[in-house]
């Protein structure tokens, strides 16, 4: 009763009331739907309500940050050491031989990144067109056969994506992805090998060899021709401190 004359005469006030409600409703709706969407997707909003989970995840993030900072420092120190050693090599003298042996040992152990001539071959999963999922995936034994072939052909260093293959690196299947050493890798798998590029390429291209076996068997895998390159970079072996590939799980 009191309301109707007041709202009728006071049009600016009424407009302000409606405007403020509209702004608030829109912002509120946005917040709610963002949260709802996240919950519906099984995202972080579910876990954030659990203090245990959120505090543990915060601690994990903090430890990851510290680890990354340490790793950055470590790589800086390593660069310094390598520079000093190549300096010592250049000066010659009694230590030069030891330094040269140390460098060779580092290359073999895979603790330094290498550049040099070599080949690159990329293996991607096939497109699933039938019921048999396993047929169209790249498996651990597929990668192993290529890596073994490269080493047999005399490669000095081999890597799959960002994982350097060392003497201790195992390649095995962990469900949908392939574990290479400490890293979980997914397709496409880019295999790089440093060595005599024509020999490596010829070894891979052998008729009926490893790549032919991967291309055949009606599996639909995409295997590129081995590309010979004058300079490729093979990364150093990285011990597992934090997730190497993919994004952090929510």
């Amino acid at each position: 009763m009191k309301e109707s004359p007041r709202t009728a005469t006071n049009a600016p006030l009424r407009r302000r009331v409606v405007g403020s409600w509209t702004i608030v409703a829109a912002v509120f709706g946005l917040m709610v739907s963002v949260q709802y969407h996240d919950v519906a997707l099984g995202g972080a909003a579910i876990w954030s309500a659990l203090p245990d989970v959120s505090s543990v995840s915060a601690r994990l993030a903090a430890v990851d940050n510290v680890n990354q900072a340490l790793r950055r420092r470590e790589s800086g120190v390593m660069r310094n050491i390598l520079a000093l050693q190549s300096d010592a090599l250049r000066r010659g003298g009694a230590t030069a031989l030891v330094e040269r042996q140390l460098h060779a040992a580092r290359v073999l152990a895979g603790t330094v990144a290498l550049t040099g001539p070599g080949v690159v071959v990329t293996i991607s999963d096939g497109r699933m067109s039938g019921p048999d999922l396993a047929q169209f995936l790249t498996h651990d034994w597929d990668l192993r056969s290529v890596v073994n072939e490269l080493f047999v052909a005399g490669a000095d260093a081999v890597s799959i994506n960002s994982a350097r293959i060392t003497a201790q690196t195992g390649v095995y299947c962990i469900g949908p992805v392939v574990r290479v050493g400490n890293m979980r890798l997914g397709p496409p798998f880019v295999i790089r090998a440093i060595g005599d590029s024509s020999v490596l390429a010829a070894a891979l291209n052998l008729p009926g060899g490893v790549l032919d076996a991967l291309r055949g068997a009606n599996r639909g895998l995409h295997v590129t021709r081995p590309q010979q390159k004058r300079r490729i970079r093979v990364p150093a072996y990285e011990p597992a401190l934090f997730a190497q590939t993919g994004e952090a799980l929510p």
Binding site: A44, A45, S48
Partner: peptide, 13 residues
């Protein structure tokens, strides 16, 4: 399509 990082999801709640 916003994915909330877990550190910030609690603040939105």
């Amino acid at each position: 399509n916003v994915r909330l990082p877990i550190q910030y999801a609690a603040y939105l709640s």
